[in-house]
Design a protein around this nucleic acid. Structure first.
Lengths: 122, 122
DNA sequence: AATCAATTTAGCTTATTAGCTAAACATATT
DNA sequence: AATATGTTTAGCTAATAAGCTAAATTGATT
């Protein structure tokens, strides 16, 4: 269950050009991982990719992309799973589900004229 | 139709503690406007409120809240309508609808294994 | 054990953001 | 016309964020 701070962190993470692009492409499978074909894919979905292969798509230095990915991970937007010396990056669909629900409920209850609690933990 | 820049701006606006609280309360009707009872309510929905009455709920100076509200307005999250010398602030439900759809689609198409275009204008 | 590949950490600079106070502006009321 | 109310603008400071390079770390390969 995401509380208000979690949500703020998620929006902050998505509120940056570079991170939003990374996010978008991870979720849409826009990246290929150069190692996908040579590694067993058990437990790793098709979109799984690694830091270097994402960084290749940007004009920023690798450490910069690494820090952006950390922020997306800390916001629970993606997961990063170490396997050997590479890190598999995957969308965290549970978080997206919860955010989708929040906005969906917000709209629905607004239209019904119900007072909506966007965050009912506070 | 919100493009990628619009979306980034929306997330950036919501990715700040103070603004997220303002947003939440505007959408949930958490503020009362001190002038609601003395002004005709034509064309103004129940949640409509004004800058001063929002600022009263925060420990920040009025100009600070004013600037946050401007940012929410610029991100199309709220509308600000001047009527006499007061400004009526209302949720922009169309924007929320579109964001809700984005996340809803993201989740749905992800689960169906379809490659999802979060932003198909780029 | 030396090297290579993938990633993070440290330390720095520059740009942006969030807060403030004081002053200005706009409209209403007396 | 003077005052009061609601809001924004200007100009400042301090904190945060985004980028960089260089170095460190981890694990795989030779």
């Amino acid at each position: 269950m995401l509380d208000m701070d979690d949500k703020t962190k998620i929006f902050k993470a998505l509120g940056n050009d570079t991170r939003f692009k990374i996010f978008k492409n991870i979720f849409t499978g826009g990246y290929a991982c150069s190692i996908d074909n040579t590694q067993p894919k058990d437990d790793i979905i098709a979109q799984a990719t690694c830091v270097t292969s994402i960084a290749e798509h940007f004009d920023f230095a690798l450490p910069t992309i690494s820090r952006h990915l950390k922020e997306l991970k800390d916001a629970q937007i993606i997961t990063m799973t170490k396997s050997k010396n590479k890190i598999y990056i995957e969308p965290n669909i549970d978080t997206m589900k919860e955010i989708a629900e929040c906005f969906g409920k917000l709209v629905k209850e607004y239209e019904e004229g119900v007072v909506y609690q966007f965050d009912n933990t506070k």
